[in-house]
Amino acid sequence: MTQRPSVDAPGSNNSMMRRLVSVLRDPVAWILVIAGIVEMISGGTAARGAVLFAAAGLILADRVRLSRGKPVSPLAATTLQEALAPHWWPLLLVAVGVAVALLREHTLPLTVITGSIGIALVGWAWLTGPGGDTAAPSPGRSLLWWGGLFLALGLWELTALLGQPTLAVYSAEHPTISFLIEPILATFPGRAVAVGLWAVAGRSLVRRA
């Protein structure tokens, strides 16, 4: 008697379907994709959308590898963390922020600087991340509270965005956070503080990762 192949055998339709579902079920990737689409249709530059789409792509790539049973082998995160450890780093980053703020906002040089550093650190986070998600403790109720807060902020911002004449044209009657911050970033001190804070926040993330 001939033995029939199992429906879950590698390569079978059922097995491929399960793998596809396991790849696509990560909500974080889809949140990033949706955020990227909103960014692009609301007048954002390609660089802004690219950061979000690239991050979603990395998460999906992880899922593909895990679904194939291939463990993700992380690199050591300590090298960069140790390099950023000294206490004088925040002062240096603020100084760099002041220097970088000499450039006008929303110009190519500033886009290249922030984009390059941002993409480099997203790549670093991907390469040095934990091997899987299973060992991590679930934030549970905390994530519900904090997630609810950020969801409320996102929906309120979206409401203001939809109240504009078009998605790409600001309205003083329906101010978005970008619209409110724009006058501050247009000044050199405001831009210096913003770049410095962004750099210090990046260092803080690397140190905690």
Partner: peptide, 20 residues
């Protein structure tokens, strides 16, 4: 892994959105 990538992406996006 997902949370880590999303947090760094959110930080990078803040930079390019408000400054770049």
């Amino acid at each position: 892994r997902s949370g880590r990538i999303a947090l760094f992406a959110a930080w990078a996006w803040l930079g390019v959105h408000f400054l770049g």
